[in-house]
Design a protein around this nucleic acid. Structure first.
Lengths: 231, 231
DNA sequence: CCCTGCAAAATGTGATATCATTTTCGAGGA
DNA sequence: TCCTCGAAAATGATATCACATTTTGCAGGG
């Protein structure tokens, strides 16, 4: 068994063991701590997180339902492989869903929220200066999430997060390759569009934001072996 | 405990107990056998399905990750309530996702597939004549699924199915109220559009198909108590 | 008739044990 | 050196059990 480190995560009071395991695994996947193709075992994870297999299996099943973990026929688990075709599919889906979410959140935009997002963006500049990839990823997602969740009738966020979860394992390798400067510029564009209440410009900025990370990613996947061979 | 009947479902060979429980519950929810607001208990379900609580818990967790079952803070489970706001949100999401899926599946359309869909549509006419709601629902979903899954890089189907799952408990009441004639007409429109390879018309037909079921549904929800009170 | 409080029953959770499969790995042969 | 095969180890699945918490139902008081 490869001893992939699952980052620790504080356990809130009243939190179920299974819940804790779920969020810890989820966090690890989102941040790219588990690479595509990584094989997992329930007992191995149980040992790593120092829990019994039962809550681990439940956490794993939840993640498998979100397509973050693949359950193979022979009852073994792995982080899904990334292929060029799947990657493009996921990116297109992100665009479709996140633009939809932004449009429906737009009427709920307030000056207070925009100010909040501005502050978050400033902190992201700090994370960039500090080369803190994990914090940057987390805040980037938080930025989008705050916007999308303005719409009080929430059904879209879980779907978007499933996509983030599926892209997570691969994202790490992308970010490590890139200079990571573009991301934040797009957020500045998004903020400007929000300031002038320009929904078209906002959507355009979001689409660019999503695409930015994808260009080099696609190049990475192509450099490997087209579509057949997993990454 | 209300003894809500969970419809039986054949258990394929090599199928895990947990998997069987998952599909059986999923099927029950999709077909609307469990109404919104229904309270569930793990032990109760275990007794009903004649299993131990362990595989039930895993199945329930999977469904909770797909937002088909709500896990309340006090550790109790229920089928989520339906409100007008949530319903409209889910319908809008269906439209956004299914049009996206149809567009991306379109290039893979072949005459054989269209013929297959035509045959399925004929069988749906039979189900309508026989007033078999369950079969109709199943075949209706199958119809859409066959189309969307033509695109070989599948990531969208699980998201769409999560939406179907969330609409399922409410759908039953809608269908029981309506004369159920429109649905199939839309499928004929879809088939016509496929025949002439007209993607615009196909998308329009799909959108109408999705909306059709929603009009009366929205009216049902309004007749109740606006948005605050659950259905 | 309605509210309050308390004891009994029921529930979710998580650890453990057992069983059937699957994987691992090294010995022996080509 | 490479392949085959079989035994040992590891693994996933599931039932069961113990425990803490919650719900339920009823008795007693207002």
């Amino acid at each position: 068994m490869t001893t992939t480190d699952i980052p620790e995560l504080p356990r809130d009071d009243g939190m179920t063991t299974q819940e804790h395991a779920y969020y810890r695994l989820r966090n690890a996947i989102m941040l790219g701590a588990l690479r595509p193709g990584t094989a997992l075992t329930i007992r191995g994870l149980a040992q790593q997180l120092d829990l019994s297999p039962t809550p681990i299996r439940e956490a794993v099943r939840r993640l498998s339902s979100e397509n973050a973990i693949e359950v193979l026929g022979n009852r073994r688990l792995k982080i899904p492989d990334m292929t060029l075709g799947r990657f493009e599919e996921l990116v297109q889906l992100r665009i479709a869903l996140e633009l939809h979410a932004a449009e429906r959140a737009f009427p709920y935009l307030s000056e207070i929220v925009i100010e909040h997002l501005r502050a978050l963006d400033d902190r992201m500049d700090g994370a960039i200066a500090a080369r803190d990839l994990d914090a940057l990823t987390r805040m980037n997602q938080e930025f989008h999430k705050i916007l999308y969740r303005l719409n009080p009738y929430q059904a879209v966020m879980p779907l978007i997060e499933s996509l983030w979860l599926q892209l997570g394992p691969f994202q790490r390798q992308v970010i490590e390759t890139v200079k990571m400067v573009d991301v934040v510029d797009r957020h500045k564009e998004m903020l400007a569009a929000m300031g002038t209440r320009d929904v078209i410009a906002l959507c355009a900025a979001i689409e660019s934001d999503i695409r930015d990370g994808s260009v080099t990613a696609g190049r990475l996947l192509l450099r490997k072996a087209g579509d057949a061979r997993p990454f």
